[in-house]
């Protein structure tokens, strides 16, 4: 039954990557638009925490 683990690991990887890409991308867009410098980092942090929350929802709960 190592197949479930394989699936879970790549799902976790995908969630983290898409979290960073989506919210980080929004932050980057805001930075370009408003001529600021800190929205990208903020977006990346929001994305990573959202993704970890999602991982907790999917795999961390009993």
């Amino acid at each position: 039954m190592a197949k479930r683990e394989e699936n879970a690991m790549w799902s976790i990887f995908g969630y983290l990557l898409s979290g960073l890409l989506f919210w980080g991308g929004i932050g980057y867009g805001l930075d370009q638009w408003l001529n600021q410098g800190y929205f990208t980092l903020l977006g990346l942090l929001v994305g990573i925490s959202g993704a970890i929350y999602l991982v907790w929802l999917r795999f961390g709960r009993e």
Partner: peptide, 21 residues
């Protein structure tokens, strides 16, 4: 409230990141 945070990630994972990776 958490759907705002999560739903985009689910969509992106399912339709872009999974086949791409």
């Amino acid at each position: 409230a958490a759907y705002i945070l999560i739903t985009p990630l689910e969509i992106l994972t399912f339709f872009v990141v999974r086949p791409l990776t």
